[in-house]
């Protein structure tokens, strides 16, 4: 579905991505693992059109997205749930959701129906729909950020470290949401440092180190790899 070939992205002279290739299959959760500064967020930003690739290609269902800008990428079905949530703090929950649908140019009735759909999926957001987003708890803000991403009706949802800065119990809740979304058929490309949690939801893993993919495989394969075990899963055998 989403296919990335030899992607190179640089900040000035520093190459952050040195030729990344990966595939995210329809209906699956694909997880990008890796240490800080390895290029995980850069990969998502390049796919989303916030950064422009120097070379390589980003292709969604056969359509080349490499040179498109952020607004065009969103309207073609790739939505980003950013790291640290970045909800609009002084707008209420409902306006945050509407902002998520900005790229669609849908009618007011359609958007209202989708907002209602989000409330059904996330009842906690409905309870707080008139509250300013900045007054929500961290977990609720993450729910809102996910719901806001879904409001764009994406064909694939990019999620950048949804567990960051959240208490373990809330992290479990967020991963339940990811699992639930995936069961409903949402394709997800997930960037995570919390490999242990990701292991339960993802179908395919890519390990990115120093701007290169150094390993890829199924959850089973990743659990058998001793190096990854030691570095990312904090295994007891190591």
């Amino acid at each position: 579905m989403l296919s990335i070939r030899d992607l190179v992205t640089s900040y000035g002279n520093i190459e952050a991505l040195r030729g990344i290739s990966l595939d995210a299959a329809e209906g699956e959760v694909t997880c990008l693992l890796g240490p800080n500064g390895a290029g995980k967020t850069t990969t998502l930003f390049t796919i989303a059109g916030i950064l422009t690739a120097k070379s390589g290609a980003v292709v969604l269902n056969g359509e080349d997205m490499t040179r498109l800008r952020a607004a065009e990428v969103v309207s073609r079905g790739i939505a980003l749930v950013p790291e640290n949530r970045l909800v609009f703090p002084r707008m209420d929950v409902e306006d945050n959701l509407r902002a998520g649908a900005y790229s669609r140019r849908a009618s007011a009735a359609e958007i209202a129906a989708d907002v209602a759909d989000m409330y059904r999926r996330f009842p906690r957001l409905e309870e707080r729909k008139d509250q300013l987003a900045g007054t929500l708890s961290g977990g609720e803000q993450q729910m809102l950020a996910i719901a806001r991403g879904l409001m764009a009706r994406p064909r694939i949802l990019l999620m950048d470290e949804p567990s960051i800065g959240l208490a373990p119990m809330i992290v479990a809740e967020i991963f339940d949401i990811i699992r639930e979304l995936n069961r409903e058929g949402v394709t997800i490309l997930l960037v995570e440092q919390n490999a242990r949690m990701a292991l339960d939801v993802a179908h395919k893993f890519y390990l990115i180190e120093g701007g290169r993919i150094t390993f890829s495989g199924s959850p089973g394969e990743i659990e058998q790899d001793e190096v990854i075990q030691r570095a990312y899963l904090g295994s007891r055998q190591g």
């Binding site: 989303a48 916030i50 952020a70 607004a71 065009e72 990428v73 969103v74 309207s75 939505a79 980003l80 950013p82 970045l86 909800v87 609009f88 703090p89 002084r90 707008m91 306006d95 509407r98 902002a99 998520g100 900005y102 790229s103 806001r148 764009a152």
Partner: peptide, 18 residues
């Protein structure tokens, strides 16, 4: 909506396609 979102957080607004 776009104007308010941009005032609040220009980066997040760009992610929404604004």
């Amino acid at each position: 909506l776009a104007l308010r979102a941009t005032s609040e957080n220009p980066l997040a607004a760009a992610y929404m396609g604004i």
